Amino acid sequence: MGVDDVLYNIGEGVELFWSKLLLFISGILQPRRSDSPPNFRFLKKFVRKELTVHELLSLRLQLVFIVYLFLSLALVLVRVSVLALVFLFVIEFSYIRYIVNKYRDFFVDSEPYRVFYYSISLLSFAAFGGYSLLRSFSRSLYPIITYIVAVFVAVLTFRAYFKRRYGRDYTYGVVEEVKNDLVRVFVHDDIAANVKPGYYWVERVQDAEPGTVVKLLLEDRKLRGAVPSRILEVYLRDQSSQTSSEPKNESE
């Protein structure tokens, strides 16, 4: 192979790399709604139990945010430039935005997740970035303590706003099993209701049969999230268990 061929192949490879990179960046900045869910090949290797697409998307958001927190903390501890925190935040926020917008049709309700993760990402960036700046310009503890208190108040304020705007004392589930006077209900991860995904036993009501979608009243438990306490309404039988907890046509 001659020198010209080598240079041509190098140029072609660089051109292909940049075109794919630009396409990737464009997809992140302007995500298009997907008609199919992601495959979750990497995530499923670490998940022992079966989860719905909604649960897997929620888990991905949680993991991305947790990694962002640890990396931000590490950058603050090693006293790097604030620009590094800005760069890390842009990557995290862009990816969160990409997940929520591209796969919004596969969330039970994407809006609360969008608002929640956008907001806590911004609050976290403000907390780390502000602390890093204060530490650079002031050696006194009082401004830093004041700022930490202000961040804490901001988090509580957002929590109150989110609960008032999106919070509710009910969620939906799919009846999986009937046993005497009890039914086992599968509930999706529901950030608006502050309930964890999983199976819950509640008292059986009329027409609550395997496959039916039910509306559940929640009991709020401080620091542990809400848990279903009883069935409020029963909807027509769902066609596939664990695929949807949105109500269909309500039964008479």
Rank of each mutant, 00 (worst) to 15 (best):
R104A: 08
S124W: 12
V100G: 03
L156W: 11
R114I: 01
Y68W: 05
K215M: 13
G225L: 06
I10W: 08
N39M: 02
G27V: 00
F93M: 07
D169G: 15
A84W: 10
Q206K: 14
L232G: 05
V86R: 01
L61S: 01
R159G: 05
H188R: 02
E12N: 08
S81T: 13
V53P: 03
L156T: 14
I91R: 05
Y147A: 02
K215E: 15
D181M: 05
L216M: 11
S119V: 12
Y199G: 05
F42P: 03
R139H: 13
A226M: 02
T171W: 00
F17E: 14
F106I: 03
P112Q: 07
R184I: 15
D190E: 10
R33T: 03
L23G: 00
I99D: 06
I231T: 07
V14I: 14
R114D: 05
A127S: 13
V153F: 12
S229Q: 11
I191Q: 09
K163V: 01
E12I: 09
K222A: 05
I145V: 12
L56E: 08
V178H: 06
L216D: 05
L59G: 04
L16W: 01
Y172T: 12
L182S: 08
S94Y: 06
G173Q: 04
A126M: 14
P143T: 09
V195A: 03
